[in-house]
């Protein structure tokens, strides 16, 4: 039902619900190839991850060139959101929520860096660069080993430290 009745006021939208079901069918069929450039969401199990790979060593110079201006050298300081934890999140005070102490899922890094970063030139990084930056940040956050290679196979298997730190607020609405 679209709108509910309040305090005895008439349910005036009910007619439009039946009306709305009568679609003019004006959607144009599209193929995966048509929408490939937009089809960039990565799911937590790794679906959507592209070919390519990267390591922290490869990510460091990319970070220095494209990220450090806002996020600080080696992820420290900077004017943009913190990338490194200053300790565990133990209450609503104190530690800022960052990758290593908060984010529940590893694939979020690839998804977000690729779509939204660098801030001034989003969607300009190659997939290899995104994997490399993902590896670099996961190493800085002490989540993976220094030489670990991030790719479509390995990234979804990375277990984030705070993966069990969440309570779904409204499970009945999912």
């Amino acid at each position: 039902m679209f709108t509910r009745k309040c305090l005895g006021i008439g349910l005036v939208m009910s007619a439009s619900v039946a009306y709305a079901a009568d679609s003019p069918n004006l959607g144009t069929p599209v193929t995966p190839a048509d929408i490939a450039a937009w089809d960039i969401s990565i799911l937590p199990d790794g679906r959507g991850l592209p070919a390519g790979s990267g390591t922290a060593a490869q990510g460091a110079p990319i970070y220095a060139q494209k990220c450090a201006a806002c996020h600080g050298e080696n992820g420290k300081g900077g004017t943009a959101s913190a990338l490194l934890p200053r300790g565990p999140v133990t209450s609503i005070n104190g530690a800022e929520r960052t990758i290593g102490n908060f984010w529940p899922v590893s694939t979020t890094l690839f998804d977000y860096i690729r779509r939204a970063m660098p801030w001034q030139q989003p969607k300009t990084l190659t997939n290899d660069e995104v994997y490399a930056l993902t590896a670099y940040l996961l190493v800085l956050n002490k989540v993976i080993g220094e030489s670990d290679v991030m790719n479509a196979e390995t990234l979804p298997k990375v277990r984030m430290p705070n993966r069990d730190g969440f309570i779904v607020r409204f499970p009945g609405k999912m």
Binding site: P88, V89, S91, R97, F102, P104, F166, I167, V168, R169
Partner: peptide
């Protein structure tokens, strides 16, 4: 995953 989660006094956080 981050911005629109709500921290709780026990260190856990509400999501969704």
């Amino acid at each position: 995953s981050k911005t629109y989660t709500q921290l709780l006094p026990n260190g856990k956080a509400y999501q969704f």
